[in-house]
Design a protein around this nucleic acid. Structure first.
Lengths: 160, 160
DNA sequence: CGCTAACAATTAGTGCACTAACTATTGGAG
DNA sequence: CTCCAATAGTTAGTGCACTAATTGTTAGCG
């Protein structure tokens, strides 16, 4: 066997910016989030805040830890975000009774009502992006597979 | 005809976090960038800085404006990033002669040499993610299509 | 019971990303 | 030639995302 690893034969042009998946991925992420902005502005939410609200509309109250797990983000990221959502009047923050460590995050009436406006967002976004429900589904599957790939341990690196 | 728009029939569960493309996309982006971190740490670069270096390895010197266009980012994002790359000793910043407005961003010897180490990065990352070159290519195409979708003007919204 | 290790949340500090405001330069129209 | 609109870059301010350090609480082990 040569010293060449299983998947990665070195190729010319491997460093070309335009063919980096990581580049296309970050641009796509920023572009899509940017496309949400005018729509979410009407609700008074940023995109990360919108994701937190989706979380709470499914189940509330829930703890900060629970939300941070659901969004795959560090508690330190969620903490100030919840503070701003409280200031905006959409969520409540109080300690769980029986466990002074945990923070119970709930919805205010305004937060609950906001869901009615949010119901139109997914459809609006599909239209704005010109994507069919099927295309969205396929892209979603691709992203889930990619997330799974980062979560696994492909530890072959240099074991030959 | 009813008031329902062409693409977006409202469906139950459209607001479920787990089926939002925008959520999967942002998680995938953060996960992949995160997977680069240990590799890029060895080069002394963050991921956005790595993208700037890819840019410069293809062509240098070039202006800040040119780089910001290539990376699809605001000049205000690139400006401090270049300052840090200069402090790290990888790039030079000087005014273009004949045009005092433009900033010519070039490579230092250290910046040029860094490319040799960077050559291994794409292969290393493919191995770490357990992706074949074909899979990377397919995902890349999907992302480019999505970027194109955000760039177009799907202005049908409510015209019926 | 008392101590300690694990856990929940917050804070501090760095870097990105974006908008808006500002400075300086350039170049073209009158 | 002069003025003025467009351009290039920087700075200020907000919000996200991450790591590390800190505070307080809980729970379990001896």
């Amino acid at each position: 066997m040569t010293a060449v690893s299983n998947a990665a034969q070195l190729q010319d042009n491997d460093l070309l910016l335009e063919q980096q998946l990581c580049f296309a991925l970050t641009v796509a992420s920023r572009s899509v989030v940017g496309a949400y902005k005018p729509v979410l502005d009407n609700l008074g939410l940023t995109h990360p805040q919108y994701l937190v609200m989706l979380c709470l509309w499914e189940s509330a109250p829930r703890t900060l830890r629970n939300i941070s797990d659901a969004l795959a983000q560090a508690p330190a990221t969620i903490s100030p975000l919840l503070r701003r959502l409280e200031e905006a009047g959409f969520v409540t923050r109080q300690r769980v009774d029986g466990n002074e460590r945990s923070l119970a995050v709930g919805l205010t009436p305004a937060g609950t009502e906001l869901r009615q406006q949010a119901l139109a967002v997914p459809g609006t976004m599909m239209n704005r992006l010109g994507l069919t429900r099927e295309q969205v589904g396929e892209l979603h599957s691709s992203m889930m597979a990619l997330i799974a790939a980062t979560a696994e341990d492909h530890a072959d690196a240099g074991s030959a």
